[in-house]
Design a protein around this nucleic acid. Structure first.
Lengths: 231, 231
DNA sequence: ATTCTGTCGATTGTCGACGATTGACACACG
DNA sequence: CGTGTGTCAATCGTCGACAATCGACAGAAT
């Protein structure tokens, strides 16, 4: 009847904006994020800004150094590799639980997801393709039924997205990338747990090395070389 | 020459105390944690208390409801099962990476850990045995080499410990429990990845069902039955 | 020239206070 | 007697201000 009209609380909205700023490259990795400046620009006090930054910190997108402040997190190749390793850990684990729980309805939907992925790739809408890619893998996690693992996946996805956003062009061949999901679908059809696992393993390892390769070419800010105040 | 004399910042110290209070059963699951009260008792203002609680929230030990405040998290059986599932996910994943990375030195140390576990069990020092149990599994994670996974394990361990602390007597046969680690060691000796995985799987599944069984007998506070202000 | 010291500006950590919102309780009404 | 409304106390969310701390910079001493 009536919409709940819930406007999110201030910290969440601030966090969203900061997150978007990071994604848009407005805030670059390693950059110092001053509480007062954001507070001023947002027309609020520092308290909610602080909470927002702490929230993002808990999600791994911001790092804080005592008495130094908050900095946009920058990932080096090793850290990216670790993240992908963890992601593989989560996805393959669920893949096993998946076999028993996946319904035919789920399988259909997953196939549809990949089709959409291909369509977006063919049209060159890479930005949406990235989102769709995560949607597919997310559903893989969701079917597993462990809300905790799903939450972790979402966190990782956010991190990777923010980290990857800076790279710009991720896929050199979007159509090819979409196609790499076919073996996974095939394995799912067979309901072969170990095959699903190995296909996912290969898929994610490829993605990992690919992203990391691109990342290496980027002049990222080493996050242990922390300048005091970059002004 | 001189000790660094680093006294942790206020929020961390507060978090430690709250954590200990939870572990000691001074704050029971589901209970409302009032900012002002803690601030008063600690002789500080509410701001650092807030930060401490948010920190604990990010670690999953506290839940917050907007405009309602912070509550000590209570786990139901399903959530415990999910946590154990995630833990199994992490440990088994590492077990695979382990085969290649584990040195003889590591293996020796792991064996020593289990021996200590047995000794503590034989002497009936269950509290320390629990800690030692985590230490063993933690090292298993550590050898894997993924700092991210290790961090997650630590978080989970903290949660489980706080959740389990309430149960009191965890092991009805401490010696038996210690012995269940032998098959894992044996598998590690063989450097058989899939065997390691299956042994860990069984070990953790046993622990899970055991803990959950005990938990079911406990009159835990259902955490969706949130009283407004419990005064 | 290099190193150490002292000062300075900027930012964080902490504080007390105010308004807003929530849940509980008592009361009127059907 | 059950239902709904109004009031109230308690607590959270937010605010502006102050002191403590940090890094940067300039100057003195060796």
């Amino acid at each position: 009847m009536f919409k709940p009209l819930e406007q999110a609380d201030l910290p969440s909205r601030i966090a969203d904006q900061v997150l978007q700023a990071i994604g848009d490259g407005l805030l670059r990795p390693g950059e110092h994020v001053t509480e007062a400046r954001i507070a001023e620009q947002m027309g609020t006090s520092r308290a909610p800004v602080r909470e927002a930054l702490r929230l993002l910190e808990s999600q791994g997108l911001i790092v804080s150094h005592p008495r130094r402040g908050f900095f946009v997190r920058s990932y080096n190749a090793d850290e990216l590799a670790e993240i992908y390793d963890l992601r593989e850990c989560l996805e393959t684990h669920n893949a096993q639980a998946l076999v028993g729980k996946m319904t035919d309805r789920d399988l259909e939907q997953l196939e549809a997801q990949v089709e959409l992925l291909k369509a977006l790739g063919a049209e060159g809408r890479t930005q949406e393709q990235v989102v769709q890619d995560y949607a597919f893998h997310r559903m893989l996690c969701a079917v597993g039924g462990n809300s905790r693992i799903l939450k972790l996946f979402d966190q990782i996805a956010t991190e990777l997205r923010s980290g990857i956003a800076l790279v710009g062009r991720i896929y050199d061949d979007p159509v090819e990338i979409a196609r790499t999901h076919d073996p996974i679908i095939a394995a799912l059809r067979k309901k072969d747990a170990s095959l699903i696992r190995s296909e996912l393993h290969e898929h994610l390892r490829d993605a990992s090395t690919h992203v990391i390769d691109i990342y290496r070419q980027w002049p990222s800010v080493p996050h242990d070389a922390l300048p005091g105040h970059p002004f």
